[in-house]
Design a protein around this nucleic acid. Structure first.
Length: 418
RNA sequence: GUGGCUAUAGUGUAAUGGCAGCACAAGAGACUGUGGCUCUCUCAGAGCGGGUUCAAAUCCCGUUAGCCACCCCA
């Protein structure tokens, strides 16, 4: 019985991992240059953390979480997103209560959905959270940071949509009015929207079914219910984005699938993906810290889907990082010199020379072929004759020139040749 | 969770229900100690379980996985 990786989870093999490293390295550089620091939280959390933050009525909580009971009878869940664990950690570790805390994270998330293009059960996110302020400068600043990362990655064809949901009171008012508007029209709504009407009215706003869209054309929208300060906040964010020359469109029907969002929400899509075309999304969550027992403080964050970002990048056909060729391939002509070769590469590697040794007893021809395939710049041949004189043959694979060098000078010779 | 499509060497692909081929990759060799080109040889395959049939890669059922869409979302 063969064992396979499980449904919706896959291996990232070396060739692809190089691209992942490139994207993650670039993200770290961009975040750290703006004063963000990495945080690593556990992959398992108490189930209640997600139930309370994401929301009981959401799909993520109601049907997509990997939840199980451990040996101590506790209900644990594999994290489906990154924000809630960070808020938990922020409170638990009493991070800088009177200052703004800027964090970023990189890692796997888990949702038990039916896999399709751009959606797997273990997927990866790169995200940031800035906790401790409700200033619109952080909304715009975070979005700028994201576009800056896209620029560094040479990603260009993305679209940013933004909207504001308002504060908790505004959201409540909107939900009430929207419910009142839709109830008489109930029979014209799709079955999903009928359920949403009871469970989570706001979600009817982004329904794709044509009949629902026409019903909703003149429905109450989030922007109609923004209170004075929320309206001002939203306007300031838009002004700042314009100031930063970031292209965006307003989408009055955008709502997000996580209950904790307030005020600014945004989503970034890319045409190179399939139906799951959001490569990044996020927004403000000014109540979450307080809801978990911290002091009342504003916060903003977003996450990028690493797989989707990679798909977007490859759809734009940008050349990725190339595999680095070997500096030196050490060929051996018999097991007598394995130990000699084994020891010889130690100082080379300490000198930063990227090298490999053959211990497989292949013919010299086969080893040369392999050296060529590995794009080795030099080959050092450890042969009986040469070793007797304390030398090895050093071949330059580019020029095909070959000469004997002292074994003790090998590192120096290779360094000079590179 | 619902629906549609798919499943053949490591990869990509052929074959009216009748001998499973091809290309690339991998390994060995064509100079007794030397790479790229070329040539020769070798290795290696029907996801799994049933059924129909003289005969199944091929038809049918189930299952598993993948893909795509719905839904949802990063």
């Amino acid at each position: 019985m063969a064992i396979h990786s499980i449904k919706g989870m896959r291996d990232i093999l070396p060739e692809e991992a190089r691209l992942w490293q490139f994207v993650e390295r670039t993200a770290r550089e961009v975040f750290e240059s703006s004063g963000y620091e990495e945080i690593r939280t556990p992959i398992l959390e108490e189930t209640a953390l997600f139930r309370k933050s994401i929301g009981e009525g959401t799909d993520i909580v109601s049907k997509e979480m990997y939840t199980f009971t451990d040996k101590g009878g506790r209900s644990l869940t594999l994290r489906p997103e990154g924000t809630a664990p960070i808020v938990r950690s922020y409170i638990e570790n009493r991070m800088a209560a009177d200052d703004v805390v800027k964090l970023y994270y990189v890692g796997p998330m888990f949702r038990s959905e039916r896999p399709q293009k751009g959606r797997s059960r273990q997927f990866h996110q790169i995200g940031m959270e800035v906790i401790g302020s409700s200033s619109p400068y952080f909304d715009a600043g975070a979005i700028f940071l994201m576009t800056n990362l896209f620029k560094k990655l040479a990603l260009s064809d993305f679209k940013i949509k933004i909207c504001s949901l308002g504060c908790a009171k505004d959201k409540e008012k909107l939900a009430k009015e929207l419910g009142a508007y839709l109830t008489p029209e109930k029979n014209r709504l799709c079955p999903d929207c009928k359920t949403r009407l009871k469970k989570n009215v706001l979600r009817t706003l982004d329904c794709k079914v044509e009949s629902c869209r026409s019903v909703l054309r003149n429905s109450p929208k989030a922007k109609d219910f923004l209170c004075g300060s929320c309206g001002g906040h939203y306007k300031k964010v838009k002004d700042l984005l314009a100031e930063l020359k970031i292209d965006f469109t307003e989408d009055a029907n955008m709502v997000r699938g996580l209950d904790y969002y307030t005020n600014t929400v945004f989503e970034v899509t890319h045409p190179g993906l399939g139906a799951q075309d959001a490569i990044a999304a996020g927004g403000r969550y000014d109540n979450l810290v307080e809801d978990f027992g911290g002091k009342k403080t504003g916060a903003f964050g977003f996450a990028l889907g690493t797989e989707r970002l990679l798909m977007a990048l490859s759809s734009e056909k940008k050349a990725g990082p190339q595999k680095k060729g070997l500096d030196l391939y050490v060929a051996t002509t018999g097991d007598k010199m394995y130990t000699e070769a084994f020891k010889a590469v130690i100082p080379l590697r300490e000198n930063g020379i990227f090298c490999e040794v053959n211990f497989q007893g292949r013919s010299l021809k086969s080893q040369m072929r392999q050296a060529n395939k590995k794009e080795a710049r030099f080959v050092a041949i450890f042969g009986d004759e040469e070793l007797k004189r304390g030398e090895v043959a050093l071949r330059d694979m580019k020029t095909s020139e070959q000469r004997n060098v002292k074994l003790s000078d090998l590192a120096k010779e290779v360094r000079e040749g590179l």
